[in-house]
């Protein structure tokens, strides 16, 4: 089926409001970046880098800036989702092997979100989405909407991009052919994740600093720290913004904005 990918005009938001970056984190595995990490072990999750990397960046943010889990929401964006798990499960079925219940358990992003919620006591809304638009734009817009809710103080937004086998590469090539999107150049076993914990500028007085993030249409202040932007795929903007405001301490590549965020 031939599909055209047009960039639909965004609906104007009525009151673009500054969001505050409370914490930010990035993690990569198997990419060849200097700050690559070994894949963290996550009990109950197997084979795929998706959930461990998602959990890693979320945990760094939530640990760096603890808060009330009852007043925290989480939104995860991933264009293709956990393709490693999907591919493994499909291959098993096609080859006539028995389904692996563990792959079933981790088949949706709900599972790692559920694990996150248990570990950090998060009872606000958690959801996941896929969009061909820039996930950073969509996640910031979503955080803005969610933070209108007086029952919420914080929204953790995160994104995950995985490498993959030939089928995942073919998906990206087809998307690129239809829309001119960049084809991510991640090795098959590699993955990237980024997370930003957001609040309202006037809401959380313990925020380290106000880093205004305009939601509707304006440019997000991004300091690119990546020399290999092609690897970042669909989460490039999110990853670069998180890197610019990173609050974890396991890297020496912090930027001026990071320092600013800790003032």
């Amino acid at each position: 089926m031939t599909t055209t990918h047009t960039t639909a005009p965004r609906s104007p938001l009525t009151s673009p409001t500054a969001l505050t970056v409370l914490a930010a984190a990035t993690a990569s595995h198997g990419t060849g970046r200097d700050d690559d990490i070994a894949l963290p072990k996550l009990p109950g999750f197997v084979e795929s880098a998706f959930s461990p990397l998602a959990y890693e960046v979320a945990a760094r943010c939530l640990t760096a800036h603890p808060g009330d889990g009852d007043r925290t929401a989480v939104a995860l964006a991933s264009l293709t989702g956990d393709t490693t798990t999907a591919d493994l499960a499909s291959s098993r079925m096609v080859s006539g092997r028995v389904h692996n219940p563990l792959l079933f358990m981790q088949a949706t992003a709900n599972s790692v979100l559920g694990h996150m919620s248990r570990e950090f006591g998060i009872t606000g809304q958690m959801f996941s989405l896929s969009t061909l638009a820039d996930p950073l734009t969509e996640l910031l817009a979503m955080a803005d909407v969610l933070l209108d809710d007086p029952e919420l103080d914080r929204v953790l937004v995160l994104g995950v991009e995985l490498g993959g086998g030939e089928r995942v590469a073919a998906v990206h090539r087809e998307l690129a052919a239809d829309s001119g999107r960049p084809v991510p150049s991640l090795p098959a076993k590699a993955g990237l994740a980024a997370a930003i914990l957001l609040g309202r500028a006037d809401h959380d007085t313990s925020a380290p600093a106000t880093v205004a993030v305009a939601v509707a249409g304006a440019q997000v202040p991004i300091n690119s720290t990546s020399g290999a932007a092609d690897q970042l795929g669909s989460i490039r903007s999110l990853f670069e913004l998180a890197a610019a405001h990173r609050t974890d301490t396991d890297t020496d590549t912090d930027t001026e904005s990071h320092t600013h965020a800790h003032q």
Partner: peptide
């Protein structure tokens, strides 16, 4: 294969109905 991407279904729906505006696929 690109039709396997969740966001594609929202795009197809939006294109098919002539909708403008944001298109999101919730995957939870």
């Amino acid at each position: 294969l690109a039709d396997a991407v969740p966001a594609q279904l929202a795009e197809l729906l939006g294109d098919g109905l002539g909708l403008v505006g944001t298109r999101l696929a919730f995957t939870n």
